[in-house]
Design a protein around this nucleic acid. Structure first.
Length: 680
DNA sequence: GCAAGGTC
C-alpha cells in the first residue's frame, strides 16, 4: 500500500479570532472525504449541529468557536484522469487531465454546491483522510472550484472519535505546499499512462494478429498478480512427484490404544523394517502434559473477513464486500473497508452487546472488559463490528452478519483451554511420537464455532513405560506440487506483497477473471492469460519492483526531495524506452487464437439440452459470437455487438438461460417459439 | 474495448 507521508503540513495552533478571520460573519467550510466522516466532524465541533440537504447533498451546519461552519462530504475521488486521445489504436498515452467523474449525479451536484460554498467561505479546512489519496481528493476539489487562493488549513486525524477530531481541529495544520497531493496525483498519472498505454498495445497486437477486438488490460497491480499465477502454473506443470511412505502405528499402554506416527519413509527397506515392529515393545523416552490457552480470534478487518467467508461459505471476496456494504447501509454493521483489527472503547461495546443479547444468548457469558485486538490498524476506521441493530436477514447476508456478530462477541470471551499431551517412543531404530489434545473449556468457541480444535486421546505416561505395538499401517504417497491459488489466497498474496489496497484487491482479481486471463475457483491460467504474462516479460509492469520504486519516488515528492514533474517524466521515459523494444509475438497470437477457439471460458448457464454441460461464449474466426455447450455441443448464435451478461433467469418458453444486453433481455435459443433472433 | 484508487 502506498504510504502516507506527513511533512506537507506544519503544525499551527489557531485561536478563535484567527479562525473567525477579518469577517466573523463568513463561515468556515470543511471538506470531508465521505458522509460518515462529515457527520462525525460536525458532531465533534458542535453537539447541536444540523443536517441540511442541498440538491440531495448533505451539508452539516453548526457553530465552532463562535463561527458558523459547513461540513460537506465528497464521495471518494470526484475527479479522475482522462485522455483526449480516444482512439484505442493510439499509444502511448502520455498526457491526461483531471475531469469530474462522468455520469455521476452526486458529483455534478456536489460541484455545483461546493463552488457556492467556496465563494461564500472565509476559510477552508480540508478534513479528508490523512493519506495521499485523501489529500488528492481535497486538493482537486479546492483546485478546480475556485478555492485555491483562499486560506486553506488541514485537519489531521487518524480516527473519527470526537476526542481526536476536536484535538485535530484545535491544532490545525497550515498549508505550506501541497506535497502529499503532488505525490497522490503523480501516482494517478503514472498508473494511468502505463496502464492505458500497455493495455492499448496489447489490444492492438491482438487485433492485428487475430482480427478480434478483445477488451484486454494490464497494469501495475494486475501485472504482478497475473505473473504470480503464471509462475504458480509453471511450478505445478513442471513438478515431478516423488514417492514416499507414511505410516501409522497403533500402540497400547496400560490397556489404552492410541495412534503414533514417525517421519516419512524414503525406501522400501525402511518400509520392511517398520512393518516388523508389529508385536514388539517400544519405550517412552519423553512425556509432557500442559494446558494451552487459546485466545479469541482478532476483530475482523475486511480482508480477514473475506478470507473467513471464503473458507467457511465459499463466498468470493468481492461478493463479500458487496454484501458487507449492504449490511452497512442497513446500519447493521460498521464501515467494512477497514484494515483495523482493533475495537476502541468509543464504539460503546456495552450498549451493542446488550442489544445483541436479545438474539445471541451467548452474550451473557462474556468475561473480558475489553475485546482482544490484533496488530493491524487503520487511520480512519475501527475493525468491523455489529451496531447492535437487529433485522431479519437470509442467505449470504445472514451468514456474513452472523459471522461478524459472533466474531465480535467472541472477542470479549474467555480463552478456550486445551490439555495438550506429547509423547516420544523409541521402537527399534524408529523415533515415534504421539500428540494428544482434549478440550477442557470451549471458551470463545461457544459463540464462534467456526474454528476446529481437533481432539485426540492418548494415555498419560512416564519415561520408561512400555508401549506394545499392536499394528502398523504403511501407505504409499507422492509429494504434491504447490497448490493452486484461490481468490482468497491470492488476495492474501497481494496483501503480503503490498500491492493494491484493501478496497481494490478483490476488484483486481475479478478483473483478471473478466479479461479471461484466469478461470476456476482453484485458479488456472488460460491460454490468453499465459500469453499475456509471457508477452509482457519485457516490461516493468509485471514486477513488484515497479510498485516499490513508485513508492520511494512518491515519498521523495512528499518530503520535497523530488518534483512531481521529474518523477513523471522519468517514468514516461522508461515507458517509451520499453515500447521501442516491443517485438511482434507469434506465440501470443497463436495462444490467443487457441483461447478464442476453445471459447472464452465465460459460462452463460447450464445447457438445457443435455442438462450437464455449460453454455460457453465463443467467438468465431469471422468474429461472430455464439454459445456452445462444452459437453453436448448444442449451440446458439448471439448478437454481434454489445456487452452480453447472463440474465440469471431461464426463458419461460424453452428453459434456456436468458441473456441481457443493455436493457434488453432475450432468449438465445434459435428454436425457441419466442426467439427474437431466430434464423440469425 | 484500456489503470488504480476512492466511496455507495
Amino acid at each position: 500500500m502506498l504510504r502516507a507521508g506527513g511533512v506537507a503540513w506544519s503544525a499551527h495552533r489557531l485561536d478563535a479570532a484567527e479562525v473567525a478571520g477579518s469577517n466573523p460573519a463568513r463561515p468556515i467550510l470543511i471538506i470531508a472525504e465521505k458522509n460518515d466522516a462529515a457527520k462525525r466532524i460536525a458532531l465533534a465541533l458542535d453537539h447541536s449541529y444540523k443536517k441540511l440537504s442541498f440538491e440531495g447533498i448533505p451539508v452539516y451546519v453548526g457553530t465552532w468557536n463562535l463561527t458558523k461552519f459547513y461540513v460537506v462530504p465528497a464521495r471518494g475521488h470526484l475527479y479522475t484522469l482522462k485522455t483526449d486521445v480516444e482512439d484505442l489504436r493510439l499509444f502511448p498515452v502520455l498526457d491526461a487531465e483531471w475531469v469530474p467523474l462522468e455520469g455521476d449525479r452526486y458529483v455534478s451536484k456536489f460541484l455545483y454546491i461546493i463552488k457556492k460554498l467556496l465563494r461564500e467561505s472565509e476559510q477552508i479546512i480540508i478534513a479528508c483522510d490523512y493519506d495521499i489519496e485523501g489529500e488528492t481528493i481535497g486538493f482537486n476539489i479546492v483546485k478546480y472550484n475556485g478555492g485555491f487562493e483562499k486560506v486553506v488549513k488541514r485537519a489531521k486525524f487518524s480516527t473519527l472519535t470526537v476526542e481526536e477530531l476536536r484535538q485535530s481541529f484545535n491544532s490545525l495544520l497550515t498549508r505550506d505546499k501541497w506535497l502529499m497531493a503532488d505525490a497522490g496525483r503523480t501516482r494517478h498519472y503514472i498508473d494511468f499512462i502505463w496502464g492505458i498505454s500497455l493495455s492499448r498495445l496489447l489490444m492492438e497486437e491482438v487485433r492485428l494478429g487475430t482480427g478480434k477486438r478483445l477488451s484486454l488490460s494490464i497494469g501495475r497491480v494486475q501485472g504482478p498478480t497475473l505473473i504470480e499465477i503464471f509462475n504458480r502454473e509453471l511450478e505445478i506443470n513442471s513438478y515431478v512427484p516423488k514417492p514416499y511412505w507414511k505410516f501409522k502405528i497403533i500402540g497400547e499402554l496400560r490397556g489404552e490404544k492410541f495412534e503414533l506416527s514417525g517421519p516419512n519413509l524414503k525406501s522400501l527397506e525402511e518400509v520392511q523394517r517398520v512393518k516388523k515392529l508389529k508385536g514388539k515393545i517400544g519405550k517412552v523416552t519423553f512425556f509432557d502434559k500442559s494446558i494451552e490457552e487459546i485466545k479469541p480470534p482478532y476483530p475482523f478487518n475486511l480482508s480477514d473477513l473475506q478470507k473467513e467467508a471464503y473458507r467457511l461459505f465459499g463466498i468470493q471476496p468481492w461478493e463479500s464486500l458487496t454484501i458487507l456494504e449492504k449490511l452497512y447501509l442497513k446500519a447493521l454493521i460498521s464501515y467494512p473497508r477497514t484494515s483495523s483489527q482493533k475495537l476502541p472503547p468509543t464504539i460503546n461495546y456495552k450498549s451493542i452487546l446488550s442489544k445483541l443479547a436479545q438474539k445471541y444468548k451467548e452474550t451473557a457469558s462474556i468475561s473480558r472488559p475489553h475485546p482482544v485486538e490484533g496488530p493491524m490498524d487503520d487511520p480512519a476506521h475501527p475493525a468491523i463490528y455489529p451496531t447492535g441493530e437487529l433485522q431479519p436477514l437470509s442467505g449470504n447476508e445472514f451468514k456474513l452478519y452472523d459471522l461478524v456478530v459472533r466474531r465480535f462477541i467472541g472477542t470479549f470471551y474467555r480463552n478456550a483451554r486445551v490439555t495438550k499431551k506429547y509423547m516420544k517412543v523409541k521402537a527399534e531404530e524408529f523415533d515415534l511420537e504421539a500428540d494428544g489434545a482434549t478440550l477442557i473449556d470451549k471458551g470463545w468457541l461457544e459463540v464462534y464455532p467456526f474454528r476446529e480444535i481437533r481432539e485426540k486421546k492418548i494415555p498419560d505416561a512416564s519415561v520408561g513405560d512400555e508401549v506394545l505395538i499392536k499394528d502398523v499401517n504403511v501407505e504409499l504417497a507422492y509429494t504434491k506440487p504447490p497448490s493452486r491459488y484461490t481468490p482468497s489466497s491470492l488476495l492474501d498474496w497481494m496483501e503480503s506483497n503490498e500491492i493494491g489496497t484493501k478496497a481494490t484487491r478483490a476488484d483486481i482479481i475479478k478483473t483478471l477473471y473478466k479479461r479471461g486471463y484466469i478461470k476456476g475457483n482453484r485458479i488456472e491460467i488460460t491460454e490468453l492469460g499465459f500469453s499475456v504474462a509471457r508477452y509482457f516479460s519485457f516490461s516493468q509492469i509485471t514486477t513488484l519492483e515497479m510498485t516499490r520504486k513508485l513508492e520511494s519516488s512518491l515519498e521523495s515528492i512528499e518530503v520535497g526531495k523530488m518534483l512531481p514533474g521529474y518523477v513523471l517524466s522519468e517514468s514516461a521515459k522508461i515507458l517509451i524506452e520499453e515500447l521501442k523494444n516491443v517485438k511482434r509475438s507469434e506465440e501470443m497470437i497463436e495462444l490467443t487464437k487457441k483461447y478464442l477457439a476453445a471459447g472464452t471460458g465465460e459460462s452463460f448457464g447450464k445447457c438445457p439440452v443435455c442438462g450437464k454441460g455449460e453454455l460457453i461464449l465463443h467467438i468465431s474466426q469471422a468474429g461472430k459470437r455464439y454459445l456452445k455447450c462444452n459437453i453436448c455441443g448444442a449451440s446458439a448464435p448471439l448478437p454481434r455487438k454489445g456487452k452480453l451478461v447472463p440474465a440469471k433467469k431461464n426463458c419461460p418458453h424453452c428453459g434456456w438461460p436468458m441473456i441481457k444486453r443493455g436493457g434488453w433481455v432475450f432468449c438465445p435459443n434459435p428454436n425457441c417459439p419466442n426467439s427474437k433472433i431466430k434464423n440469425a
